[in-house]
């Protein structure tokens, strides 16, 4: 991981970004604010040096969703009054398109900020930061374990795939053969991750994880700078202002 200011931000700050950005996009009228927030996330991804993968993920997710939303909302939304095009079998409505666009932007903001969060934090740091702000040890472990389980299962799946291929199971090929080999692949993956979880639990116990009446320290130092606090307060204020302003606009109308 390269070092830059996005990565150095406190994990809590980046975690808070997800609901704040997402909710602000939802409550704000129209999609301008959403687009602006999306731009902020993109700039942060660029600053964090993950822009290429970030855009790849967003585009590969965004395009099919966009097509689906625009067709369904654009052609068949009951709100449609203004029509921008006539396709013969149905008319393309502006209101539906706008609504579809808003939904898309909201999804992208949520996904983008989550992706940024996920790729720029070290999961141990997140757990440490949350435990520091009064999350229980067990809760921290739960978060850590669930963040780690996916890459771990991915690795495990690769090993098991090799082991099954060596026994004559074709794992590539047509969809049907892939589905057929899925069961022999999944069996050991699930079983071994269950065994792993159990053993890790016992190992943690043996190392005093559940000791009572001791003040525990953490090996991982989480830096929470003034800037981080400022960011968090700023984001909350921003959310409150956006919400209040949106309500005001609605009431006035």
């Amino acid at each position: 991981m390269t070092d830059n200011w996005v990565r150095r931000l406190n994990p809590k700050t980046k975690l808070l970004m997800i609901p704040v950005f997402g909710i602000a996009t939802i409550v704000s009228p129209g999609m301008l604010l959403g687009l602006f927030l999306l731009l902020v996330v993109i700039v942060m991804a660029w600053q964090a040096n993950i822009i290429k993968k970030f855009l790849q993920t967003m585009i590969s997710f965004g395009i099919p969703i966009a097509v689906m939303l625009f067709i369904i909302q654009g052609l068949y939304s009951p709100q449609n009054h203004t029509y921008v095009a006539n396709l013969g079998f149905a008319k393309l409505g502006l209101e539906g398109l706008m609504y579809g666009g808003k939904l898309l932007v909201t999804l992208l903001v949520f996904m983008g900020s989550f992706y940024l969060f996920n790729k720029t934090i070290y999961s141990g740091e997140l757990a440490a930061a949350l435990i520091k702000s009064s999350l229980s040890d067990k809760g921290g472990y739960l978060i850590l374990a669930s963040l780690n389980v996916v890459p771990q299962m991915k690795r495990q799946l690769q090993v098991i795939k090799e082991a099954q291929e060596a026994r004559g199971v074709q794992t590539g090929g047509s969809l049907l053969t892939r589905i057929k080999v899925f069961i022999p692949l999944m069996g050991p993956v699930i079983l071994s991750s269950l065994i792993d979880t159990q053993e890790r639990g016992m190992a943690l116990e043996l190392r005093g994880f559940d000791l009572k009446n001791v003040s525990k320290t953490s090996y991982i130092q989480v830096v929470d700078t003034k800037l981080d606090k400022l960011f968090r307060i700023g984001m909350l204020l921003f959310l409150i202002i956006v919400t209040a302003f949106s309500i005001y606009l609605k009431v006035r109308r």
């Binding site: 495990q156 090993v159 098991i160 090799e162 082991a163 099954q164 291929e165 060596a166 026994r167 004559g168 199971v169 074709q170 794992t171 590539g172 022999p184 692949l185 069996g187 050991p188 079983l191 071994s192 065994i195």
Partner: peptide
């Protein structure tokens, strides 16, 4: 040839039997 096709000629016993056994 693929690994699966070689399986009849080349048998491979993995270090960890848990990766191999599933029935």
């Amino acid at each position: 040839k693929t690994t699966a096709e070689w399986a009849s000629k080349v048998g491979y016993v993995f270090q960890n039997p848990n990766d191999q056994l599933f029935l």
